[in-house]
Nucleic acid binder design. Structure first.
Lengths: 346, 346
DNA sequence: CTGAAAGCGCTTACAG
DNA sequence: CTGAAAGCGCTTACAG
């Protein structure tokens, strides 16, 4: 059913040359007479010939395809990430074979192994703190790879990461400088590397800048429903926080929703901030203060790092690159009457 | 640099069988002794063997990969679409080769042709009204395909579409039944098929239900900025509409933003509705009335339609399937004091 | 049940 | 500059 396909032989016959010559002409090799090249091109065009990819990559050992293995394909983050990767892939004439493993480490292994013979290199994101061994096992085998937001120390694989720790500290500094003192934190998934780093940033900031305060941490899992739950929990607490820092924007929005429903004013009654700067953050009311992560750029840089990687043996290459997020101050932390910082904790 | 790779020969040698047997064992063919199968499996496992995909698909003529060619990869819509496609692909053990052509018809052709020998079937979305010939040219060649939201009459290619026309009429019926009479429409891109159908639904609804009114159409291009512009234009008009129907949610949100900035109350001063039900729509204030399109389901059904397609020669198969969107009434069209329908236009 | 061999459609040294 | 031929790593009739 898959139809009769035109092969390089048909083109050769029509152009009256050998298949070798067709191959050379079509691949733009130098050593082909202009006249012959023309004949080949018209023959190929007339026959609507298009090279068979599997055959080509089997003999040339190149696929011109990059494998992208992600935890998921869904949502703003992955959408922007794919966009950035895709842009660079197009610039370089590369294809993208995507695979998501839905948070299942076993599936991740399957996905990774299935890439053999299909791709020239791999972009892998695995934001888990355990699965380290599994990942290392499925990666170390002769395929260039770049890791994204992935904690895999010692494997020597180039890694690009958002500076989640530094970003959380920057945001905390902003809150503290704005006079907030009772700052609650809605955490992300326990096993998530980014979440872990953001939490660490929050904890260290509290310890250093507000030594009298104890960290106030609510559980969450990065989705808006858990932010909503955390928001309700905060509403029910005897003494409310004066600011809430959610480990990502989706949870911040869920929390905002809970506050709205309860009639609580943001930032008047309580300030709120998130992390990621998803597009929504600009549009909700009040607009959300957050740490902007340029995910599109992040994806693009990852692919470039993979493609432009220096020779394996160049030991001077940094193995980890950190991208700093940017503080975006919006209405949700701009109280009309900003509180005064207490003098005892400047 | 690509490293030493283990081939089927290495496995054969280690298991002391022929490559043919290895192939059969690994592919789960019946005719292999259990003992031999075991030997082959352990050998393969010990060597961390993983079959070379290009070789396999060159000889078997199957790739176990589906090509997905979309206008873009970015944004909520494509994200959800990919999610739906991906879910089904996983169920069936298929890979996805994605390609977006960024609205460029030429690139679309390149992308389509590049799929040869890489995929067993194609999912193609091409929401343009012109490019019909180019698309037909690049499709008709012996590759099973399913079209998504694509207008390509006469090519006999199965097509799945959102019922944009019917959806627009449903929404208009809701607005009219709610008592709104001066209903403006923010249109989508001129060349876009979905936009065209939604506009047609609006026009027909006005003509039939409000024969005294003339259509009031503002240009837009589906992004939030154009909705914002349209909103400002409406604010400047001498007599404001009592309701605005934007051809998609993003524009509705841009419009809402403009109204908010101007201090206009929605729905008190003017009602507002969109199309798509993007997640944001539930969270803005006021929440947005819209037509819900289950895009994830849409993507999943498209892939299923491709995989479960009956034999080519079965003429009883419908070539076009329409998916009806669902009306979601939220705050943005729920005026506190609903207007009375004028008796002359019940 | 198992093996030897042909063949999938290309690319690429190797000759000329 | 061009061609004949080997080879990429598999699968699959064809024998046995």
């Amino acid at each position: 059913m898959s139809g009769v396909n035109i092969t390089i032989k048909d083109v050769a016959r029509r152009a009256n040359v050998s298949v070798a010559t067709v191959s050379r002409a079509l691949n733009g090799h130098e050593n082909v007479t202009e006249a012959v090249r023309q004949r080949v091109f018209s023959a190929a065009h007339e026959l609507r010939y298009s090279p068979h990819h599997a055959a080509r990559s089997l003999s040339s050992r190149r696929t011109r395809t990059i494998g992208v293995v992600l935890p998921d394909l869904y949502g703003e983050f992955f959408s922007e990430l794919m966009r950035g990767i895709d842009q660079v892939a197009r610039e370089r004439g590369l294809h993208l074979l995507v695979s998501s493993y839905h948070g299942n480490p076993e599936e991740q292994g399957v996905a990774l192994r299935a890439m053999r013979g299909r791709v020239d290199g791999l972009l892998v994101m695995s934001p888990y703190l355990d699965n380290v061994d599994g990942l290392a096992d499925n990666l170390s085998h002769s395929m260039p790879a770049v890791l994204l937001n992935t904690h895999l120390p010692g494997a020597g694989i180039p890694t690009l990461s958002i500076d989640n720790y530094g970003g959380a500290r920057t945001l905390m500094r902003h809150l503290i400088e704005s006079g907030y003192r009772r700052i609650a934190f809605i955490a992300g998934p326990e096993d998530n590397f980014d979440a872990h780093e953001r939490l660490r940033g929050y904890g260290d900031a509290i310890a250093e800048a507000l030594p009298d305060a104890k960290p106030w941490i609510l559980p969450g899992d990065f989705d808006e429903a858990s932010g909503h739950r955390a928001g309700r929990e905060l509403l029910a607490s005897k003494q409310r926080p004066d600011a809430v820092f959610a480990a990502n924007d989706m949870m911040a929005l869920g929390c905002l929703f809970a506050f709205n429903q309860a009639g609580l004013q943001v930032p008047g009654d309580v300030a709120l901030a998130g992390f990621d700067d998803i597009p929504l953050s600009r549009y909700v009311h009040p607009s959300l203060t957050t740490m902007r992560v340029d995910i599109t750029e992040f994806g693009g840089r990852a692919l470039r790092a993979l493609l432009d990687r220096p020779e394996q043996d160049d030991a001077t290459v940094p193995t980890e690159i950190l991208l700093a997020p940017e503080l975006i101050v919006r209405e949700s932390t701009r109280a009309e009457a900003p509180r005064q910082a207490r003098t005892d904790s400047s």
